[in-house]
């Protein structure tokens, strides 16, 4: 899908800063933000939450046949990251050869270009993840 300008603009805070939400009743974190906690429903108390951006690779793949607009990045590592707060999110893993990506690898969020709609179209920015050296943590 070609993302339209309003779609990207309305999610800028969430996408650029990894802001989701947290249910204060049960302590569960959500990204993207949920306004209803699936566990607590009406008993849930939802507040905005900015994630640290740190986490570990829960699972990954190497995309070799890309969707329209992503051909430039092929082959790229796509992973589900388990953030340290417990929520999981899908994102690309960069600054590493895709073959070297491993489950359990510690990563942190980086701000990158996500998608380009031709030479004159919209450029989408957002989060990707890169490996971090645990020694420096």
């Amino acid at each position: 899908m070609r993302p339209g300008l309003p779609l990207l603009w309305r999610r800028t805070v969430e996408r650029y800063n990894l802001v989701g939400s947290r249910c204060e009743t049960c302590g569960t974190h959500f990204i993207p933000a949920r306004n209803i906690c699936p566990k607590c429903r009406r008993k849930g108390k939802i507040v905005p939450y900015k994630f640290s951006g740190r986490g570990k690779i829960y699972t990954y793949t190497i995309i070799r046949v890309a969707p329209e607009g992503y051909e430039f990045f092929v082959p790229y590592a796509l992973a589900i990251i388990e953030l340290e707060e417990g929520a999981r999110i899908t994102g690309q893993v960069v600054d590493i050869h895709p073959d070297d990506v491993k489950i359990g690898m510690p990563v942190e969020m980086v701000f990158r270009k996500i998608h380009e709609d031709g030479d004159e179209g919209l450029i989408t920015y957002g989060f990707k993840f890169r490996p971090v050296n645990e020694v420096h943590q």
Binding site: M1, P3, L7, R11, P32, T59, Y60, T61, I63, V65, A66, P67, E68, Y70, F73, Y76, L78, A79, I80, I89, T90, G91, Q92, I103, I114, H115, T124, G126
Partner: peptide
Amino acid sequence: VTALGGAGDQEWELLQGATFPGLYALMAR
């Protein structure tokens, strides 16, 4: 492929560069 992508979460999976083979590959791994 783009049309079939509509079965996933456009904003939080497909926009990140996921494809349907990719999503099932994440499960396979």
